[in-house]
Nucleic acid binder design. Sequence first.
RNA 1: GGCCGGGUGGCCGAGUGGCUUAGGCAAGGGCCUGCAAAGCCCUGUACGCGGGUUCGAUUCCCGCCCCGGCCUCCA
Length: 461
Amino acid sequence: MTLRLYDTRTRTVRPLQLQRPGHVGVYVCGPTVQATPHVGHLRSAVVLDVLHRWLLATGHTVTFVRNVTDVDDKIIHDAGHNDEPFWALATRMMNAFTRAYDAVQVLPPTVEPRVTGHLPQITALIALLVDNGTAYESGGDVYLSVKAVPSYGEISHQDPNKLRQGEADDTLKRDPLDFALWKAAKPGEPQWPSPWGPGRPGWHIECSAMAVEYLGTAFDLHAGGLDLVFPHHENENAQSTAAGHAFATTWLHHGLVTAKGGEKMSKSLGNSVLVSDALRQVPAPVLRYALGSAHYRSTVEWSDQVVADAAAAYDRIATFVRNATEAVGETAPVEQPGWEEFAAALDDDLGVPQALAVLHGAVRRGNTQLADRELAGLAGTLGLVRRMLTVLCLDPISDWPTSGSSELTPVVDRLVALVVDARAQARERKDWAQADALRDRLTEAGIVLEDTADGVRWRLA
RNA sequence: GGCCGGGUGGCCGAGUGGCUUAGGCAAGGGCCUGCAAAGCCCUGUACGCGGGUUCGAUUCCCGCCCCGGCCUCCA
C-alpha cells in the first residue's frame, strides 16, 4: 500500500509519484511574516506535519522545504508605520511563528529559506524568463506574459478570460492578466540591484526560485492552503513552466479554519484567534488534536465546542496511556495487529479521522484488558496505541511529557499519600463524610483520586 | 458573473448504491463503586429540498435553496 493523495491539478486521488523512490521532495508555502500567527496558520503547519511524519514513518527520506516571505508590501508598510526596518519586523514575526510551531511540536523543515537570502536565484530566474521572451521589462518592473503560457489555469481550473479583473491601475502591463516578477524600487523601500534596475521580487517568483534551489526543477509535492491555489500557485506554476521546469508533480491543498461566523479566519477580516491566546485556553496537545483531527481538506471551525471535544477525546487517550503504563510499565511503541488498518487509513489521502477511529477502538480494547487484568495483551495494545500516537505526535509520554517540576513529584506523592492514608482509615470505619471531605480537599487542590482494584491512584486534574 | 468545495443523527465529524449503516463529545439506561472517578456494555437510527436513473440512493444524474472558498494580500 502506498500513499495516495488528492492532487488539485488533476482533481483526483492518486498514488504519490516520486522522482526518486524512497525520497520525497516537499515544498510548502510558508507564512508571510507580517504579523503574529493565528490558529489558521497553525492548522496548516499541523496538517502538513502529519504528512511529514507519515512519510517518515513509511520509510521515506524527506526534504521538507518551507519558505518564509520576509519582504512584501505589507511588511514594508507595517514596518514603516512602526518606524523600524522591515527586516526587524520580519525577524520578530518569524520568531513568533517558530515559537508557535514549536509549541505544538511541528517538526522543523529541512530548510527554511527566506526571500531576502535568495535574490541571486530570483533575478537569475527572471532573467531566464526575459531572455526566452515569456517575460518583459516595463518601466523598471518585469511582468510575466500570461498569454505566453498556454497551460495557464491548469492548477486552479480558472479560465483566464473569465477572471474578474481587479483595478486596472497598472498601465505598465501589456495585458491585465500579467503579473509582476520584479517591482521597481520606490523611494525609501528596500531594494536590490538587478538587470532592470533596483527593486524587489514579486510575490510569486520567490517560490519558483527557492523550490528549484532546494528540490530541483522537478519535484514531488507542492503544498499550501486552499487560499493559495489562485493566484499564487497558478502563477508559480506558470513561471516555472515558462522557464522550462517540470516543477511539482502533485499539488496538495488543505482546508482553512473559520471563525465564529463561519468565515475564514484571517488577519484582514479581523477575526483571528492568535496562537498565543489559544495556548492560554488549551493545552498544546489538545490544540494539536483540535487542528489535526479533522480531514486535512475539510474546513475546521474554531469554536469552544470544538476545543472542548478535542480536550475530551485527547484526555480519554492520554488517560488510557497513563493507566496502562502504570499497570504494565512503559511499553515501547510497536507495530502489531491493528496497525495495518491504521496505516491504510493514512495511506488513503491522509484519512486521519478513520485512523483516529482505529486508534479509539484500540483504546477501548486496552481499557477492557486493563479492567480484566489481561496484562500481556494490554502491553501489546499499549505499544500499538503509542505507535499510532507517535505518527500523529499525540503520545502523552514521548511527545508530551508532563511539564516541569519533576523534582516535586515525589514530594507531592508523599503529601497525597498522607491524605490517602487518612482517607483509607476513615473509609475503614465507614466514616464516609470524613473520607469524602478529604477527597474534596484534594480535588480543590487540583488532584483527582481514583479508587482502583490495585489501590488509590492520583493525578492532576 | 466565472471557477471550486460543502450541507450527515443533540453537537463535531468520517463514509458508502443494498450489508452488523465509522469515531469522539453530549444524553438516557445498565455494570463496577460506600459514593465518586476512571472504565465497560446497551440505547438513539441521520444523511438540505424537488425530480430522475435503479429492483433499491444518503451515496449516481438534473434543478433549486442555503453556507463557505478563490477571482485583491492571505495557511
